[in-house]
């Protein structure tokens, strides 16, 4: 009976003379490990607005809303931190892999309302110059042009978008939501949505 007691006494004495095992958390900030999965953030400059993160999110914490207002349309991407489960799927499946990243923040204590625990970014759409329907966010178009390089010459919309962005082609005035616009041969040299492009190719 004596020996086991001595062994436990050793542990007790060691615990007595060593500093507290717990840390003084609110006063001394805690630093998580390098690969900790914390609060996800959108990065406006790297995000293309494709919405892949919303498709793969298992908790449906990322919301994509397209708002069409006359001649322009905006895509709103919102990450709701209250429903986020910090799995990292959005980061792993991001088109640019930098558009949304998980930070090291773990402290969610707030005095705000639960609904305010979110981050929203907005992305401007490329509009179809024939029917005025939104096609994809402009940043995604730019990303595709950059990604496929010279191959973008095979697609009139991509080529036009590229030429305009570098200032080689004039920016045409868009017809806001004009569904009755006549599609003819010259329509092919415009930025078109897939439906209008099919029609334009057929009619020419």
């Amino acid at each position: 009976m004596r020996r086991p007691k001595l062994r436990e006494l050793k542990e007790a004495v060691r615990a007595l003379f060593s500093p507290a095992y717990t840390n003084d958390f609110p006063r001394k900030p805690h630093k998580p490990f390098e690969r900790f999965r914390g609060r996800p953030y959108f990065h406006e400059e790297d995000c293309t607005g494709c919405g892949a993160c919303a498709q793969v999110c298992p908790a449906k914490a990322i919301e994509v809303n397209d708002e069409i207002k006359g001649a322009s349309a905006k895509r709103k991407l919102t990450v709701h931190w209250d429903t986020c489960i910090f799995c990292g799927q959005c980061e792993a499946n991001c088109l640019t892999s930098k558009g949304i990243t998980l930070s090291q923040e773990f402290d969610f204590a707030t005095t705000e309302k639960r609904e305010d625990l979110k981050q929203t970014i907005e992305k401007e759409f490329v509009m179809c110059e024939c029917c005025g329907e939104p096609i994809v966010p402009q940043d995604q178009y730019a990303w595709v042009v950059k990604k496929i390089g010279l191959f973008s010459f095979t697609n009139a919309s991509l080529l036009l978008f590229y030429l305009r962005s570098v200032g080689l082609a004039l920016k045409e005035k868009m017809t806001p939501g004009d569904k009755s616009a006549v599609i003819n041969r010259s329509t092919r040299l415009k930025i078109l949505c897939p439906r209008c492009r099919r029609e334009a190719v057929l009619k020419s």
Binding site: Y21, P32, F33, E34, R35, F36, R37, I85, F86, C87, G88, L102
Partner: peptide, 18 residues
């Protein structure tokens, strides 16, 4: 606690390792 710290280091979380 050290076991959970190792989890956090390797997988990124103490529980729900993903």
């Amino acid at each position: 606690e050290p076991v959970l710290d190792c989890f956090e280091m390797v997988t990124g979380n103490r529980n729900n390792y993903a």
